[in-house]
């Protein structure tokens, strides 16, 4: 059984079909990198997976629990609010623009949802939060507000916030795209560390070298289709498809 599975997703924005019948499944402990040019649908796929967008049609499930399926007319229907709330606790999402809550301290950013949404005990949640902050190299920052931190620190807080919900799978939507190249490294280091701990992750990224290093599998998307999928050394180093070669050549030219 796959930990995460999305099947035959179709998504249209104003007559423009951005996802054409995409299917992806991820097993426990797997790290999947999704690469592709802007507008290829990779972010939309992630947003459908995390239910920030509703699919026009398709199936979505976490740990075998169905979040959405097609009705007889072939349109996606979603599970009840209560079921969705429970299913949401299986995954976390790290945004490109962090989206930390600016009026909450770092500690409250990490602890509020576990306490108020998951109903976990404050003491235990806070202890886990402190351990996570330490792991992220953010010791002593628990009382700071997001605005007082650098972009790289904010993104590490965002990762810690997602992890403090104890998700089974973590999605990253271009986690380093809003950061200075100098700060990119610290985020990649954190993600690599999570991969070493067998965290299940799906990472949309433009960092090809990173995708090759850290991913167990790479998906190349273009124009709303999965063009190529496979081991990173195959897809990134020896792409079969012409379109993949074209896309990757721009990265090698730029160094």
């Amino acid at each position: 059984m796959s930990l995460f599975e999305i099947k035959h997703v179709k998504k249209t924005f104003n007559d423009l079909e951005v996802l054409h019948d995409i299917s992806v499944s991820v097993d426990k402990g797997e790290v999947v990198g999704i690469i592709g040019p802007s507008g290829s649908g990779k972010s939309t796929l992630l947003r459908c997976a995390t239910m920030l967008e509703t699919m026009d049609s398709g199936e979505l499930s976490y740990l075998g629990e169905k979040a959405a399926w097609n009705d007889e007319s072939g349109r996606a229907v979603y599970a009840s609010k209560q079921d969705l709330r429970r299913i949401k606790s299986h995954y976390g999402l790290v945004f490109q623009s962090f989206n930390l809550f600016p009026h909450y301290s770092v500690m409250k950013n990490l602890c509020d949802a576990p306490i108020c949404v998951q109903g976990r005990e404050r003491g235990e949640v806070e202890q886990e939060a402190l351990a996570l902050l330490k792991k992220m190299g953010l010791e002593g920052k628990e009382d700071a507000y997001p605005q007082q931190l650098s972009g790289g620190q904010q993104q590490r807080v965002a990762i810690a916030r997602a992890l403090n919900m104890n998700p089974d799978i973590l999605f990253f939507d271009e986690p380093t795209s809003a950061l200075d190249p100098e700060l990119t490294g610290e985020i990649l280091k954190v993600i690599r560390q999570l991969a070493d701990e067998d965290m299940t992750m799906v990472i949309v990224t433009h960092e090809m070298a990173f995708a090759r290093d850290v991913a167990d599998r790479v998906i190349f998307m273009d124009g709303g289709y999965i063009v190529e999928e496979g081991l990173p050394e195959d897809v990134i180093s020896n792409p079969k498809e012409e379109r993949t070669r074209q896309f990757l050549s721009r990265f090698s030219e730029n160094g």
Binding site: L52, Y91, F95, S97, N99, H103, A113, C116, V117
Partner: peptide
Amino acid sequence: GQTEAASVLGYTKGQTFSKIIFPQ
């Protein structure tokens, strides 16, 4: 993005408004 982050964290619409949107 504030609403989206709250949604992924599982906050209800009411919680999102009262805890995240309203104070800001």
